[in-house]
């Protein structure tokens, strides 16, 4: 089954689209989590349960939004591509690998687009889950779970930048730093807005 899926992915060159979706929507997810966590950081004391509830809710919404938007756009795109190819071939390709790929690939791409922000968000929230279970390690006692989650979000932004740099065949460190700068600017804007609104 996986060999067939790999063949269909290569046939339609869908791996490129899936990679692009993984990075763009993953970046969205990480920045959304960073925004929420920065909001909690500057607001009055909020319980870990409330933080987890708000962040998981956002992550699930990002998953559903990523899944549905990618499926709708990709299925329309793949159907259009198949129709164009059928015109050139002057035959129906519904039963061929191209037809199968046009039906399956939108689901695969949609899954990547939906799962990337969800999984990255859950990774960022791991310190909060650990703290909720009262299992926060002693050697991290100096660092709060919220700060650890923020550091995790910044690290993931850097890693997504590195991955993007690897895809673009650019210098990985510069690409990672550039992504990290975007996250730091985002965090800075949130801090400033909170100060203007008198929340912190």
């Amino acid at each position: 089954m996986f060999a067939r899926l790999r063949y269909l992915t290569e046939l339609t060159q869908s791996q490129r689209i899936a990679r692009r979706y993984f990075v763009t929507n993953g970046f969205d997810g990480v920045l959304a989590m960073l925004g929420l966590l920065m909001g909690f950081r500057v607001s009055a004391t909020v319980s870990i349960e409330v933080m987890i509830g708000a962040c998981v809710g956002t992550a699930v919404a990002l998953f559903m939004s990523g899944l549905s938007s990618a499926y709708i756009s990709e299925s329309a795109e793949k159907r259009h591509e198949l129709r164009q190819l059928e015109k050139s071939m002057v035959t129906s390709l519904g039963e061929s690998a191209h037809g199968e790929a046009a039906r399956l690939m939108p689901w695969l791409i949609a899954l990547v687009n939906g799962l990337s922000p969800l999984l990255l968000a859950l990774l960022i929230l791991a310190p909060l889950f650990i703290a909720q279970q009262h299992a926060w390690p002693d050697f991290l006692a100096e660092l709060s779970p919220l700060d650890s989650a923020i550091i995790g979000a910044l690290s993931l932004t850097f890693l997504l930048g590195v991955f993007l740099g690897h895809l673009n065949e650019r210098f990985w460190l510069w690409s990672g730093i550039r992504a990290l700068l975007i996250a730091i600017v985002t965090a800075g804007i949130i801090l400033l807005l909170n100060q203007f609104m008198g929340l912190s």
Binding site: M89, E95, S96
Partner: peptide
């Protein structure tokens, strides 16, 4: 053979 050519999108 012709069936497999068809499954790869050829005619």
């Amino acid at each position: 053979v012709t069936q497999h050519i068809g499954s790869m999108g050829g005619s």
